[in-house]
Design a protein around this nucleic acid. Structure first.
Lengths: 233, 233
DNA sequence: CTCAATTTGTTCGTATGTATA
DNA sequence: GTATACATACGAACAAATTGA
């Protein structure tokens, strides 16, 4: 009998020892059973574990492959935590906002340094779109996500980009039912413009202030406790 | 037939709707089968997925419970990514160091503001221990981990503390076989003392510089590519 | 201490859904 | 359309761990 943990570990070892990368095919379930000496059920459960971590990826009727090694697990995990604390307080969301702000402010220098004209145009375009959509009372979540990701991409640090995406996703899901005032929306849109302006001007201090202004409305809203629209489901 | 994802989703919903928290007991596997109308195998696989995310926790012969909702999944996932890229280059580790530095520098202000005498003593004690152990050629990983965690704790942001721990853990595992020169070790130990001094003096700029100096040796080592001791296993 | 009850861990056999050739 | 390969799902039986009588 093999402990469950052991099976998953052996599959990971198989990937490492064979120098496999994302998308590479893994042996079939039957072959894996043979290789690690466990039953199908055990192997399947181990695969389930690795799938949750995006270490392996399964395509029904096709085969199992090495996964993309994304931060999907972090999103799942953090999101659930957020939803669980959602009813009582908004602490997790509050902490998450703090983390997002810290990262963007902490990278103010490198971001401003890597800023160029084409990025400026793209971000300005997004900020303008946000303003337009906000004026029409429409949501601008897509533009917001793209904005914050584009800000990070020039740094060439994939982990930072993925963490930014992950935190944004968690934030979006957990805060989904949170109501925001029209003033807050305008404030947020303005902050995006201010961020672009500061970066284009090469003004790190102004950039930091703009990021602070960007998160200020959300932080105010979170400190109010759960007001209207704060109910879950 | 129920899609695999559906079963996990229903268990999550069960936890949310019943307002359960970490440690609370879940129905037995048999009861869950009844509740979600799936076979035991399917339920077990769903539980496996949720276990990987630390949303549920299983104790053999005892029962299944709501998990601690830790960032264990992030550690697992990132660690594997690091080990996978380990053979070729050290890019993941390099990016990770950048993230750690960014967070600590980004929080320089709040950290210095929340700094007090008792924390100063604790950190100084740890830094002294590191110096002693380094002088004897011993490892000081425990002290290093504690140092970086203690630095964050006064902020009262659990997520930041857990992220710090997670990133530290990944770093420690992925960089395990990386050799460091004696000069680098001394430099690192000195940096810890400098961090304490800067924080105690309330000097944010000095704190930021000290953090930079702390990560400088590692970053140098990583830019050298894989030198002696860089081989895996 | 031993026994029995409960619960999770592991295995096997079988049937079904899905994709490729 | 058929055949093949593969993952998905189910159910039953037995093993192992924990608890309490």
């Amino acid at each position: 009998m093999l402990r469950q943990h052991e099976v998953a570990e052996r599959i990971k070892q198989y990937i490492l020892q064979n120098r496999l990368g994302p998308g590479d095919p893994l042996p079939t379930e039957a072959e894996l059973c043979d290789a690690v000496g466990a039953s199908r059920s055990s192997v399947r459960e181990a695969i389930k574990t690795l799938t949750a971590l995006d270490i392996v990826e399964v395509r029904h009727g096709h085969g199992t492959y090495v996964g993309r090694l994304s931060l999907a697990a972090l999103v799942e995990s953090l999101t659930f935590r957020g939803l669980l604390s959602r009813a009582d307080d908004l602490r997790v969301l509050s902490e998450l906002v703090e983390v997002r702000q810290t990262i963007e402010q902490g990278l103010a220098g490198p971001i401003v340094a890597a800023f160029d004209e084409s990025l400026r145009r793209e971000l300005l375009d997004l900020a303008d779109q946000m303003a337009e959509r906000a004026a029409r009372g429409e949501s601008f979540v897509e533009q917001d996500r793209e904005f914050h990701l584009l800000l990070m991409e020039p740094l060439g640090n994939e982990l930072i980009t993925q963490l930014t995406a992950a935190f944004w996703d968690v934030h979006a899901i957990v805060a989904r039912t949170l109501e925001v005032s029209p003033e807050s929306v305008r404030e947020t849109v303005d902050a995006h413009h201010a961020i672009v302006r500061a970066a284009a001007a090469g003004d790190v201090a102004a950039f930091t202030r703009a990021v602070e202004a960007h998160y200020a409305p959300v932080k105010r809203r979170l400190q109010e406790g759960r007001g209207p629209g704060g109910a879950h489901a």
